[in-house]
Nucleic acid binder design. Sequence first.
DNA 1: GTGAAAGCGCTAACAG
DNA 2: CTGTTAGCGCTTTCAC
Lengths: 343, 343
Amino acid sequence: MNLRELSEKLGLSQTTVSRALNGYPEVSDATRRRVVEAAAQHNYRPSSRAKSLATGRSMAIAHVIPVPARHEMVNPVFADFIAGASDVYAQSGYDMLLSVADDGDEEAIYRDLASRRSVDGVIVHAPRVDDARLQLLLSLGLPFVVHGRFGNATEGYSWLDMNNRRAFARATRFLTDLGHRRIALVNGVADMDFAARRADGYSGALDDVGIAADPALLLHGEMTEHHGYRSAHDLLAGVDPPTAFLASSLIIAIGIRRACEEAGLTLGRDVSLVTHDDDLSYFRNGTDEAIYTALRSPVREHGTLCARMLLQLVADPGTTPMTRLLEAELRVGHTTGPAPRDR
Amino acid sequence: MNLRELSEKLGLSQTTVSRALNGYPEVSDATRRRVVEAAAQHNYRPSSRAKSLATGRSMAIAHVIPVPARHEMVNPVFADFIAGASDVYAQSGYDMLLSVADDGDEEAIYRDLASRRSVDGVIVHAPRVDDARLQLLLSLGLPFVVHGRFGNATEGYSWLDMNNRRAFARATRFLTDLGHRRIALVNGVADMDFAARRADGYSGALDDVGIAADPALLLHGEMTEHHGYRSAHDLLAGVDPPTAFLASSLIIAIGIRRACEEAGLTLGRDVSLVTHDDDLSYFRNGTDEAIYTALRSPVREHGTLCARMLLQLVADPGTTPMTRLLEAELRVGHTTGPAPRDR
DNA sequence: GTGAAAGCGCTAACAG
DNA sequence: CTGTTAGCGCTTTCAC
């Protein structure tokens, strides 16, 4: 059923039917009622492509998520983020386009999206410290919101980020206050912006209390259980092992926990663990928590916030860039404790 | 830059330019070269909406993924599946639309997709044993492929599934052969088709070797770490605890492992663990494996296979339904062993 | 309050 | 080999 058929069936012009359905005021109440009813009855919905072509707005938003080519791994935090965003889109009548980009041909994807005009805006994931995408996106003229930031370039575009530097400085400081002096940070991939800021917060906090950062205790890698396990395992087997771990994600923390347990260490007593917690729904359920001492930062909410920002930007392209810095909440529980005196 | 502008710039008709770009044979080589070059230079790509409207094909596929409303949880296996599928789409010039459906208004989403003609086909996720969606989808006339099956309705539509029944029968039999008689199955939500088949395989295998199934050992719930942990924890604290666990997913297995470790039990010695392994990239990296005894079943590959099936269906709507049943591979490692003699 | 007509940017007969 | 023309299904002036 299309507009023409529906209007013929009603003995009205396409114009009137269209106006009635789109809430234009100049339609009589009686007509509108009749039209709306017939539309519902015949299950009529305007073709999204025809509508897009006529209005010039595609009513769709793209999310471009990077997949490190060598691992073909998708970071599950995207799932939560996307769930949050898609709520917003659904409520506003937008569709969500998902593009999985092999590291590297991301640029081609953005160009494609822009020149094919398939979406009205883009959410950019996983920005790196020094990322060519920023210039590209600005030049493309496609509204976009970044989840995170592009290194020092923090102005001239819209982004939402959590205060990674402060969060990790705070967690580090929390551990040094407990007497820990050898604290390992099992971090994400080094050129990711979030990882750089976290490393920064960590080093800064050590500096503040006069502890010389040991490069061996700062480990970069993928956000995987394996990275957490391997890093912790190796450090614990080495000389002068850390008494505390700072994990850059819940998954990494789970790997660390496994290594600690295998080494016969009890968390919160023999060794402490603080993690950044993406609030992965997969691991949470009710009040129980697998890893209890965490910097809480709900990604799903990030998704809804970014989506809202973008829709606003799309609705009014003249808007000046919006930025939003969120603070993580430090929740203390049974996986941390004072540094063991004698080891 | 649109087709009109490009053709004017070249002094050719839109038709010729369109034909040159779309690889039609009747264009002279010289012209084609000139056109292709100009298109590349001006970064021209046809508007996808205009193209869709003209051709009647939207060149997009939707994935509808359900999110249990109460948990707002997204099962990460979707991420892997989608990564696999999106590869296929990218190569064939298709876009991927992602719809996150609150349990319940899934039907509205399919109707919407169909009547707005925003996609050429749909991948259906998480079918239930008795699922109203099957009839709906058939009546909608929108090509679709189901990842899994709709209970006993295994014909008249296209699906790809793994042989859940056989896989779990096999794993169960493997454990009974090792001498286990009390085997717990920590399964997914009961009305999910995959969970029903797994329970079926499990009970059948117990039956075959003359073990009376104890209902207390069959636990249904969400695919979360918490469900695994809680189930195993409770069983281990109860009377006559199981000597082996069968986990319906890697995440569940991780929860089970935690409960076992907390109870002071060593996997593969005091208690055995076999898991269905979705091959979640998050947990895999290199050759290391967190849980080693597993029914291997690579979801990412399921994604590419389903996508290929669907594209074929879309290309030739007359195709008879395709079905594909994959076998899981049982890999045996250090998390299983004979049943402990005395407990 | 309603309708006729133009046009969004492309593809696809049909001519030549 | 190239061009002319007529849509695809909607929205949106502009008239009435």
